[in-house]
Amino acid sequence: MRCRYHLLAYLILTSFIIAQPKISGRLGIGYTSPDYKNFAESPFPKKGAFENMMLNFSFTYQVYSNARIGYSQWYSFTSDKYEGEDFKRSFNYRAIVVETYFFPKKKLEVNFTIGPLINSGSISLTTKQTIEAWDNLMEEFNNSGIDISTSDEMTTTFLGIISSVGARYYIKPYLAIETQIGFMENFYSKDNWKFQDKDIKGPGIDIEDLPLFTFGLVYGW
């Protein structure tokens, strides 16, 4: 019985390896337009257009003559000062994608991507302060005026879906440029944040339905 399972696993694995050995990686930038509502208002830092830029990378594996499956991630990041302290805000949009495609012309590929999103967000603040117990201990060794740096973050996780339509032009058989237009539908809730294992309220951000434009370089085999 065990032998049969081994044989089955071997056949499945080898058929994948022999049939479609095409692997590709993508590096790109994306533009989206979230509405940060009160989150972006003073005193929170606002970065203008840069705030809407995202870095993107993805890896896909061709499983069929017209289909690839893979992992894709978009990363949005802001860093600034909040009341003189270091403030960081980041959102990670992670997707397991199914990408189907066809070639209307030689070298030109039109692709369609769809997949679920598992996203995470974090806001961290690093503050410098004087703690009495540490201060007393430092004074024992004839030190004074030493600030203690403390850092902590509030986090959230939320689900979503992504869909896009794109075009890829092959400069070389292994190198291509790609542009995509699509959207992200996120199920974000401001009541779903955590800080030190406690449920807290987070910022009201309108990221439920985000338009998405990306441009990238694809390297693949």
């Binding site: 017209n66 070639f103 058989p173």
Partner: peptide, 25 residues
């Protein structure tokens, strides 16, 4: 040429995925 020949048309389930994606966008 080989890429163009093998992936010239959407086949089987790939067409369904493509229609879903294009329609939703």
């Amino acid at each position: 040429i080989e890429d163009y020949k093998t992936s010239q048309q959407l086949v089987g389930f790939t067409a369904t995925c493509a229609y879903c994606s294009a329609a939703s966008v």
